[in-house]
Amino acid sequence: MADPMKQFQVSKVFDTAHPTEFGPFDLSFTNSALAMVVVVALALLVMGAAAVRAAVVPGRMQAVGEMLYDMVAGMVRENVGKEGRPYFPFFMALFLFILFANVLGMFPVFFTVTSHVALNFFIAMMIFLAVTVIGLVRHGGHFFSLFLPHGTPWYMAPIIIPIEVISYLSRPMSLSVRLFANMLVGHVLLKVIAGFVISLAAGPIVLQALGVLTFSALLPIVALEFLVAGLQAYIFTILATVYLHDAIHLH
């Protein structure tokens, strides 16, 4: 049976003679990097096609583009409010990148970049640091009142503050782990069940019939995974907007 984890292996695309190590870092162009380039290129292509022939009555591509735009605009508007407007382009880019990475990852042979915590944690950490800096710049020292909710009695502070700090620091972790876990689990599940199908097909006729049954069970799982791909992109973006809201409005 094929190794279900093999699909997540990062490998070099070009084996160049040049050394690609810079200090402790290996900066080779990997299949993960290639997948990201394709994701960004495709996202640009789709949104470009949506904008290139802008009409009052939108065509097919424009309708898709406007729907995505409206969705992210609605998220930012509802969760951050008016102050979130300057940050909208970032959230749009974030949503498109994760959405395209997740959905493209559903296609065979395409590398699922979001199934690696390294990338997700990098994105989440970027959001976390940016949001913290935005909060500090806007509110100065008052920002730390985020860690002591209103109406907390003073004697509770020694307990509440560590709890709130841990819960704040766990944000980038939970943000990245959620996306990574969802994508990893779905892909492993599909691979394992598909492995069953292959194994059963090699057996006697009774097992082959069972294999057909297993194969038909794959279909709803694939549909579910497409749903998860969209849902996780949505959740990642909406939580990022919620974090920005907390930094701007402090509760």
């Binding site: 841990i166 620091l169 766990s170 972790m173 939970s174 782990v177 959620r178 876990a181």
Partner: peptide, 12 residues
């Protein structure tokens, strides 16, 4: 979401 948040907070 709730389950992962839970585990992550303990781990952090």
């Amino acid at each position: 979401r709730i389950a992962i948040d839970f585990v992550v907070a303990v781990a952090v």
